[in-house]
C-alpha cells in the first residue's frame, strides 16, 4: 500500500499542537506561521530561552522546506499546489517537536540521508567547526539557501535529527523530519 499523506497528517495533528498546516509553503505562509507560534508561546508564557530556540529552529525548518521542496508526484498535483509541505509544531511533555514533511524524488534520498546521518554522528564541537567551515567557504545559492540549515538546527537543539522516508510510488517518497527542542536544554 502506498503512503497516505492525509492519514499521516491526521496522526500527527493530535493533542498539544500549537499549529498544524499542510499545503503551499510560501514566504507569506512562513510569516504567518511564525507569528502564530510566537503568539501561542506568549500566551502560555513560555520560558524565553525555549521560545528563542523554538523560533530559530522553526525559521530554519520552514525555510528548508521553502528552499528544497521538490515537484509533487503527478498523482497529487490535482489536490495540492506545487510547493506542498506539512508542518506540525507540538508541545509534548518535556519537549517541543517540529515536524516537517515533503515529497522528494527517491533518487535524491541517498544524498539527503548521508548528510543527516553525518550531522547526527557529530559532536557539538564538530558541528560548530562544520558550521563555521560552510559559513566561510560556501556561497549562497541564487535562492538564498546556504546549506547551513540542518547543521544549525542540530547545533541549536543538541538533539539528533529524527527522519524517515516513506515510499509513495516508484519515483517519489515522503520525507519526514522531526526536530526536538528539550525544555531543560543547556
Amino acid at each position: 500500500m502506498s503512503f497516505d499523506v492525509n492519514e499521516y497528517y491526521s496522526k500527527l495533528n493530535g493533542d498539544d499542537v500549537l499549529i498544524a498546516y499542510k499545503g503551499n509553503v510560501s514566504s507569506e505562509l512562513i510569516s504567518n506561521v511564525l507569528e502564530v507560534v510566537e503568539a501561542r508561546m506568549d500566551d502560555i508564557s513560555e520560558d524565553s530561552k525555549i521560545r528563542k530556540k523554538v523560533y530559530n529552529v522553526l525559521v530554519e525548518s520552514l525555510q528548508n522546506l521553502y528552499h528544497h521542496i521538490d515537484v509533487l508526484p503527478p498523482g497529487m498535483q490535482n489536490e495540492y499546489e506545487e510547493k506542498f509541505g506539512i508542518l506540525v509544531v507540538s508541545r509534548i511533555k518535556t519537549r517541543y517537536r517540529i515536524s516537517t514533511g515533503n515529497f522528494v524524488q527517491t533518487s535524491k534520498i541517498d544524498v539527503l540521508k548521508n548528510k543527516i546521518d553525518k550531522i547526527n554522528s557529530m559532536s557539538k564541537e564538530e558541528l560548530k567547526d562544520m558550521y563555521k567551515f560552510i559559513l566561510n567557504h560556501q556561497r549562497l545559492s541564487d535562492k538564498g539557501g546556504g546549506g547551513l540549515g540542518l547543521v544549525d538546527i542540530a547545533r541549536k537543539t543538541g538533539n539528533p535529527l529524527d527522519y524517515a522516508f516513506h515510499e509513495y510510488d516508484d519515483e517519489y517518497s515522503f520525507f519526514n523530519l522531526d526536530v526536538h527542542i528539550d525544555f531543560n536544554y543547556g
Binding site: 528563542k52 523560533y55 530559530n56 525559521v59 525555510q63 559559513l135 546556504g146 547551513l148 544549525d152
Partner: peptide, 12 residues
C-alpha cells in the same frame, strides 16, 4: 534578536 542561516552568510 533572530537571524537565519541565509542571513548569516550576508552578515559575514
Amino acid at each position: 534578536e533572530y537571524f537565519n542561516t541565509s542571513s548569516s552568510k550576508c552578515i559575514l
